[in-house]
């Protein structure tokens, strides 16, 4: 996909209001009685449309995002998107959510630690933008019952908090919870490999004591912070973002089981991690420049 094409679709789609899928058996009885369009997850399509408009220049001019294999993401039905996660205050989540909503016209719900909910203002904006706390029950409801796209970073905070010296070395994929949820919901896992995220906000070192004192998961001292001062908290470097969607992985197991073989789950999680890691290396081999791709 060329830059020209990306910009062309951007002008066509970026302000489009994506229709929110509602479960087929319950026609919306609230028509005319609601003032906002906030759904049961706290997501507001109007708010997302606004943030997409604001984020579009960052997406297509700053990061100059390029996708590969976007057609592998289904246009309907639930699927769990599983990318690698990096870069202190990671830009990969907004880039992926923005890109898919813009190109596919369907909402993406992003799972994250419930910690976000506890932060005033941030928690509310996060929820309005499609953030959902990473509880198995939430993921199941989204994937199975509502057939939505869900974005999950199995590395959790271990991904974005790692130092720049460990860049593009994928961390452990949690306890494989994402595989179990996909199995239970009977939906495919779609691995996504991302490059550019590490260089957008490299972590020079961490201050664990300060993080503990502030009650936050980690406190990264980034190159951005050192170069730009406080501005570096919000301004990433304009690294070129490239994303590759890998083939969806369907698990050949019956859905809705109470438990799944832990060894199978861990094996699949490790396999998916390996696939993403391999793709990341592959994309880095082809990358001539951090800034120009």
């Amino acid at each position: 996909m060329t830059d020209g094409h990306t910009v062309a679709t951007a002008t066509k789609r970026s302000t489009a209001v994506v229709p929110i899928r509602i479960p087929p058996d319950s026609p919306d009885p609230d028509v005319g009685t609601r003032l906002s369009d906030v759904d049961e997850w706290g997501r507001s399509e109007r708010f997302r449309a606004l943030t997409r408009t604001l984020y579009e220049p960052v997406y297509s001019r700053w990061f100059r995002v390029e996708w590969e294999g976007l057609e592998k993401i289904p246009a309907v039905g639930g699927a769990l998107l599983v990318p690698n996660h990096a870069g202190a205050i990671p830009s990969d989540a907004p880039v992926i959510m923005h890109g898919i909503e813009k190109e596919l016209g369907r909402p993406v719900y992003g799972l994250a630690d419930y910690f976000f909910r506890t932060v005033p203002v941030v928690g509310t904006l996060w929820a309005r933008g499609g953030g959902v706390s990473a509880r198995p029950a939430n993921a199941y409801r989204l994937l199975k019952e509502q057939g939505q796209l869900v974005l999950d970073f199995p590395e959790g905070t271990k991904g974005p908090s790692k130092s720049f010296t460990d860049r593009y070395q994928l961390r452990r994929f949690g306890r494989g919870g994402f595989v179990e949820i996909a199995m239970r919901a009977g939906v495919p896992v779609i691995p996504v490999a991302v490059i550019g995220s590490e260089e957008a906000m490299p972590v020079v070192f961490r201050l664990p004591t300060l993080a503990r004192a502030l009650g936050i998961p980690y406190f990264p001292v980034t190159a951005n912070l050192l170069a730009l001062g406080p501005l570096g908290i919000v301004v990433p470097f304009p690294a070129k973002f490239k994303l590759r969607v890998l083939d969806p992985i369907h698990f050949d197991v019956p859905p809705d089981q109470e438990r799944y073989s832990k060894s199978r789950v861990m094996e699949e999680a490790e396999r998916i991690r390996g696939l993403i890691q391999e793709s990341v290396y592959d994309m880095l081999r082809d990358r001539r420049s951090v800034w120009f791709g």
Partner: peptide, 8 residues
């Protein structure tokens, strides 16, 4: 904050 969005 730890609650699921929907309680069954």
């Amino acid at each position: 904050a730890r609650d699921p969005s929907t309680f069954e």
